[in-house]
Design a protein around this nucleic acid. Sequence first.
DNA 1: CTATAACTCTCAA
DNA 2: CTAACGTTGAGAGTTATAG
Length: 421
Amino acid sequence: MSFALIDGNNFFVSCERVFNPRLEAKPVVVLSNNDGCVVARSAEARMLGIKMCAPWFQMRNFARQHGIIALSSNYELYADMSNRLMTVLGEYSPQQEIYSIDECFLGLGGFEHFDLVAYGQRMRRQVRQWLGLPICIGIAATKTLAKLANHCAKKNLAGEEGVCDFIRMTESERSGLFSTIDSGEIWGVGKQLREGLRRRGIVSVENLRRADAKTLRREFSVVLERTVMELNGVPCLGFEETPPNKQQIISSRSFGSYVHELPELREAVASYMARAAARLRQQGSLARMVQVSIRTNPHQPEHPQYQKELSVPLSAATDDSLRLIRAALWALERIYRPGFAYQKAGVALLDITQAGTFQQDFFSNKRDDPRLMAAMDRINAIWGSGTLRSAAEGIDQRWRMKREKMSPGYTTRWSDIPRVH
DNA sequence: CTATAACTCTCAA
DNA sequence: CTAACGTTGAGAGTTATAG
C-alpha cells in the first residue's frame, strides 16, 4: 500500500489570487476571524519574516512599509474552492480521505506499476489549469511519510516540481535526507514533544526513525510509538474515507469589540447555539449536554480577568434549536458577572448520540416537533443561513466579528461578482 | 477496589 | 480613526467519583 498526500500551497492566499491577479508576486497575508492573526502568507510575505499566528495590529506599520496586502478570511470562498479541489483530486483514486480544507490523502494501493511521479505531475497540471491553484504532492508507504514527502516537495528538499516520492528513493538517499530534517516537521510532533525528544538527543527525523519505539512508548506515549513505526514504513494509521460523526460540536467566536452587558451576550450565545444545533441536525444526531463559556481578553492581563464555563445536562437528548438555546441561555445567566469586558463567548454540544437510539424523557411528556426544525433548515438552505432564526439571536448583532478587508464571494454570490465595464 | 466519568494537555489545520 | 491576539476537533492520559 502507498499513499499520496496532496496539499495546497498557502491555500487561502492562492484562492484569493485566483480571482485577483494583482495579488500575484506580492507579499499577501490572510487574517483569522476578527482580522486578528496571520493564518496564511504568500512566499513573498514569508520572506519578509512574517510569522504564522502573528497578531496583525502589531505589524501594521511594518506591513505598510513593505507593501504587504492583508485580507480578511473569506471562508465561503475557501470552502467552495476546497470542494472543487477535492472533486478533481478524487478522480485520481478510488480512495480519498479529506483531511482538512486544503489537504487530502489518496490511497494508491494497486498503483505500484504506475509512474507515480508522472501521475502526481498530472494532478498538479490539471488542478493548476482547472482551478488556478498550486499544490504539492508527497508519496510514500505510510501517511506520516507521505506528509513528510509533501513537506520535502514544498521546500524543494527532494523530488521534482512539487512532487516527492519516497518510495522511489534508495534507503541511503532517504537516510541522508531525513538527517537534514528537524523532528518538529513530523506529523504529530509538536512543540512539547520536539523539546522532550531534543533532551534525549533526538533532533532529526533520522534520529527518531532509528530510536527504539517501545522505549519511546514508555517515556512518551503510544502515539509517538506509532509515529516511529510509520516513519519506518509500517502503516499504523487507517484510512478514514467517510468522516465519523462529531462527538462534540463547538461554536465560539471573538466579538468585533468588547461586550459588557448581558443582553448582547445572550444574543451571541443564542446565535452560536443555533449554528451548533444546525450542524447537529445535519449529521442526524442528538445532544444531551450543553456547555456555555465566556471570557475576557487574556492578552490584556492588566484588565480585570474573568473566565467561566458551565455545563447543563438536558433531561432528554434533543436537536431542537429552541430547546438548546433555552438551555444555553439558562447557563449563561448563571455564569455572567457584570463589570467585565467580554471578548469571547462559546457554546458546545456534548454527550452526542444518534437520533432514534436515545432514551426518552421520563419526567416530561413534551416532545420536540421535528417539522419545525426541518422547515427552518430548508428555508435557511434556500435563502441563506440566518434568514429564519430565533428572536433570541437579535437583530442588530453589533457584537459580530470584524472583517474589514474581505474579498467578494466570487464563486458563491452573484451579487458579489465584479462588473466588467 | 475497579470502572467509568470528567477533566487536562497536546496536536493539527 | 478608534483598538486591536483564531476556531474546531480528536485522542491520550490523569484525576475524581460512584458503587
